[in-house]
Nucleic acid binder design. Structure first.
Lengths: 241, 241
DNA sequence: GCAAAAGTGTTCTATGTACACCCATGT
DNA sequence: ACATGGGTGTACATAGAACACTTTTGC
């Protein structure tokens, strides 16, 4: 595959790894999917799922492939986008490995496969990881994960990505809980939030059904994600001064 | 350098290239710095400046090095940030080359070196390039440049990056012209724009001096860039509906 | 009836916009 | 004087925050 590459005067061969920060809201907290490493280096530490990019596939395809290996089927509703690349010279003891990191968002319903094929994967609450109440991550994956979390927090402000965290028909209250979980703070008044969401063209589409009156309180209308991707006006995090 | 890399089962060696989209506002229009290729492939076509990343340097360092080769000294006031990575399998006929693209912003004053060391570099207006009134770019650099332009247009809305396009002491009018040049549309009322800029803490710092009354009209106050990086509230592009 | 969750109404304030008007300079 | 660009004042419309209040359910 590296046909003419040797002609490049300063060429120093590298491996391009594609890792995916898979994020998810469960039990009202933002989580990240990690896998336990079964080989050296960093055996036993937890890392973002990923693998080496093949020369015959695009970066996006490599990310989809990594996601497919973790999720099997059921990755249809997930959002995948490129995050950033990391190439510090000492980031991997194996040598010259540059990581192209991706970000993926999953609805809460999805559950990780129970140690399929020998790989152990589970979700960890990102604030636990950030505050040391979880395993130390391999390589520079703590920094990649921090960047992914900040990207999602920021993107909830001006895009419709919050709908990627909820099941297919969802309530405004579930959307509200996503914002609260991802931001870690209450997104202001629930009533005003509801008006903002319904008032933004294409954010949510109202269905004819309501939730079954299972729990306490009045049943709520069910919505599906609309065609819009950007929010005008944005829904900003509070506590700015 | 690739000590243990061969152990990676699916490893397919690649070259990591770092290219920089160097943007600049001159004569009221947004320009990009391109270099004419002097070697195959794509000899004679124009491309973004860049080179192969060394295994001993970080991605940021590789971008700084590429910029330094173009600018010599005088790159101190420039802003450099990572943009995105591109790795389609057929993007480079030499083989498996993944590009990590960077974005750099220069003040208008800077002039390209006159064919130093055999390389020919010049600025091209980005809208001319986009509409075919310029050379065709090598590889997928047209797409990278388009992404860079969109990034800058968007970042002017919610960051203080516009100050990176103007000379060190600058006037509000010059800032206004940057917004107009980058966006391609008038950023609304000039008087209101001036109040927005001065009212945002840390965006600009007023100096004691004014411009020399050289041209027409009243001399204006001179400002320097402040410490703030984000704009609260943002300065949004008009024509949204 | 009471608690809980959904949803509507209303008031107040902050912000953005449009546009009139004044200021300082060169010709 | 007047054209030109810099800068201030001000009125109007609208968007957001705070909070009271109504609706619909389970217990």
């Amino acid at each position: 595959v590296l046909t003419d590459l040797a002609r490049l005067p300063e060429a120093e061969a590298a491996a391009v790894e594609v890792d995916v920060a898979v994020l998810n809201v469960r039990s009202g907290r933002l989580h990240a999917l990690l896998v336990e490493r079964t080989v050296e280096p960093q055996l036993g530490r937890w890392s973002l799922p990923g693998h080496i990019k093949a020369s015959s596939e695009s970066l996006d395809a490599a990310a989809d492939r990594a996601l497919g290996e973790m999720l099997g089927s059921g990755m249809e509703g997930s959002h995948v986008e490129q995050l950033a690349s990391y190439g510090d010279p000492d980031r991997d003891p194996r040598g010259h490995v540059v990581v192209v990191a991706y970000l993926a968002l999953l609805p809460e319903a999805w559950v990780p496969p129970p140690a399929s094929g020998g790989i152990v994967a589970r979700f960890w609450a990102v604030d636990d990881l950030a505050h040391g109440y979880g395993p130390a991550l391999a390589f520079d994956h703590d920094r990649i994960l921090a960047d992914a979390v900040e990207r999602v927090r920021s993107k909830l402000e001006y895009t419709t990505l919050a709908t990627r965290f909820v099941p297919d028909p969802f309530t405004i209250g579930e959307l509200f809980d996503v914002y609260r979980a991802v931001w870690g703070v209450d997104p202001g008044d629930k009533a005003n939030f509801s008006r903002k969401v319904k008032g933004t063209q294409g954010f949510v589409v109202r269905t004819a059904r309501t939730t079954a009156p299972s729990g306490r309180g009045r049943p709520s209308m069910l919505y599906t994600a609309g065609p819009a991707t950007r929010l005008h006006p944005p829904i900003l995090r509070p506590l700015r001064r």
